[in-house]
């Protein structure tokens, strides 16, 4: 098929960007979306032009490195799918496709579609861990955790940190990302001890990074590749309010 692509090109964070038009032929429906961009880049190299920079790595939907706004939606038209798992059979011959980076003040653009999501790392650094050092952990079965609690913790822990929640949020809030980690650790007995400090520090860091607030539109859950539930955000609020009341 033949496609018209409108792609955001921007040299650097400090420079202005703009949408640039490209025509691309010979796109097969079996291609993944990123392979379609590979093909575009191949033709750009042939013409001696700078390629479109974009983030990607595992291309199987788990590393969380890929992510772009495709036709105005995070990771494209399919719900709960990463950009790398989107295939061209979701488009048809003659389509115009708008491609932009994930946008948020806390995700500055590096170049073209590449963005800087290091804010997420700093949110985790603020408390998204259990303070267990290596070496002499207690026997694994000495901590009993019910099947349901483990599964619920897993549901939250499955977050891949792609940032689609932020990109799709009208407030550019990182609440889904942050709350998924808070729930994961707050559910487990190992993580409960630090729960109050964790939630306060992570919420503060989220603020410091410049992410917005959550107004519960629930759009993030729709776009999240791992279908992380928005109820984790309520859980984060619960933990935060509890800390507000109980924390010395």
């Amino acid at each position: 098929m033949r496609l018209k692509l409108k792609i955001w090109r921007q040299e650097a964070a400090t420079q202005p960007g703009a949408m640039v038009d490209y025509m691309l032929d010979d796109v097969s429906e079996h291609m993944s979306f990123l392979e379609m961009i590979d093909l575009l880049n191949e033709t750009l190299v042939g013409k001696g032009e700078r390629v479109v920079e974009f983030d990607h790595d595992c291309r199987e939907g788990i590393c969380g490195q890929c992510g772009m706004m495709i036709n105005g939606r995070a990771h494209g038209p399919l719900p709960n799918t990463t950009t790398c798992q989107l295939h061209m059979r979701s488009f048809k011959d003659g389509d115009t496709i708008y491609i932009e980076p994930f946008r948020a003040a806390a995700f500055p653009i590096v170049r073209d579609l590449k963005i800087d999501r290091s804010g997420f790392d700093r949110v985790i650094q603020a408390g998204g861990f259990i303070s267990a050092s290596t070496g002499q952990p207690p026997e694994a079965n000495s901590i009993l955790i019910s099947h349901d609690v483990t599964e619920a913790a897993f549901d939250a822990a499955a977050c891949i940190g792609c940032g689609a929640c932020v990109a799709t949020c009208k407030n550019s809030s990182a609440a889904l990302f942050t709350s998924a980690k808070i729930t994961h650790l707050a559910l487990l007995p190992q993580g409960k001890l630090e729960a109050a400090d964790r939630v306060v520090n992570m919420v503060d860091q989220m603020e410091a990074e410049g992410f917005g607030h959550c107004s519960n539109t629930e759009a993030c859950e729709v776009e999240c590749p791992q279908s992380i539930s928005v109820l984790h955000i309520a859980r984060m609020n619960f933990e935060y309010n509890k800390a507000l009341v109980m924390k010395p």
Binding site: G72, P79, E100, R103, K170, S173, G210, T217, E218
Partner: peptide
Amino acid sequence: KKSKANGTKYVYDKRGVSSVWYSR
């Protein structure tokens, strides 16, 4: 705060399909 957090606007924005209009 929200408009500060948003940064640059999207050129083509269809994010509305994933939530109800009045919540936005």
